[in-house]
Computed example of a mutant assay.
Amino acid sequence: HSRKQLNRKNPEDVVRRYTEKIKTAPDEDCTICMERLATASGYEGVLSYKGIKPELVGKLGKCGHMYHLLCLVAMYKNGNKDGSLQCPTCKAIYGEKTGTQPPGKMEYHVIPHSLPGCSDTKTIRIVYDIPAGIQTTEHPNPGKKYSARGFPRHCYLPDNEKSRKVLKLLIMAWDRRLIFTIGTSSTTGETDTVVWNEIHHKTEFGSNLTGHGYPDPNYLDNVMRELAAQGIGEDNLKD
C-alpha cells in the first residue's frame, strides 16, 4: 500500500489511472505522435515502459479522446509531472493540476473605496508577496537564483457576490501554486524571475491607463474562464 502512494506520480500509473484500454483502435491518428492509432506509437524505441506496449491505445475517461498510452506517458513526462493529465485535444484536466509557484503569501481585505465603473460597491484588495530565492528541480534552472520584482503586488476586485466567488477560486489557484511561476518577464525580458501564469489580474486601482484596470465588464467572466482552463471551476467550490 505504501509503495502505491509513493508512486502515484509514476508516469505509467498516472496514465493508467485516467484511461481505459481500447481493444480495437479506430482508424484515426493519434494527435500526439501523428501515427495511426492502429499502428505503434511514434515514441516506440525512444521510451519504454514496463507493460506499456507501443501499440496499446487508451481512451481518456471523461472526454473519450484516444491516444497511444506511450504517447500519453511521453506527454506527461514533458509536463510538470504533478500527477495530473490534460487532454491535448479538448484540454480536459484529469486529477489536480498544480504549478511551480515559489513560496510566498497571499492576503486580502476589503477597502472602503469603489473601482471605476463599480460605484456602488467597496473593493476587495488582494496582496501577493513573494521573495526572491533559489530555483528547485521543478524550475527552469535548478540551483540558480530567481528574482521577484514588483512585490508586494496589489490586485483589485469589486466587492460583489461574483467577485467573492472569483476570490475563492483564486485562493484555490494560489494553494495549487498556479498564480505565479518562474520564467522570462514579457515586459522587461528578464529571465529567472517570478512572473504571472495565465490567470489575469487587475493591478490598477484608479483610471485604466495600462489596460489592467476598470471598468471592464467582461473581466470576471474572463478570469473564471482562465481559472477553469487550469482545472479550477465552480464545481470545486465547497463552502
Rank of each mutant, 00 (worst) to 15 (best):
R36E: 09
H200K: 10
L70V: 03
K202V: 01
T188A: 03
T19Q: 04
G211L: 11
E234S: 12
Y43I: 02
I232F: 02
P112S: 11
L37F: 02
D82Q: 03
D120H: 12
G51D: 13
R164K: 14
K91P: 00
C87E: 07
V14Q: 10
A92W: 00
D120M: 10
G211R: 11
A25F: 04
L60A: 09
Y18N: 03
L47R: 04
G233N: 13
E190I: 14
E107A: 10
G189C: 06
T188D: 01
K53S: 13
S2V: 10
Y43P: 00
C155A: 15
D192C: 06
P215Y: 10
I111N: 11
K162F: 03
H201Y: 00
S2K: 09
T123C: 11
Y43R: 06
M75K: 14
S185G: 07
L56E: 15
K238L: 12
G83C: 12
N208C: 13
E226H: 01
L72M: 05
A132M: 12
R225E: 14
H65K: 12
G117A: 03
G79L: 04
I179H: 01
R3G: 12
R36A: 09
K59G: 09
A25P: 08
R149T: 08
K105G: 01
P131I: 06
N222L: 07
G143N: 14
E138Y: 00
H113Y: 13
W174D: 15
P26V: 11
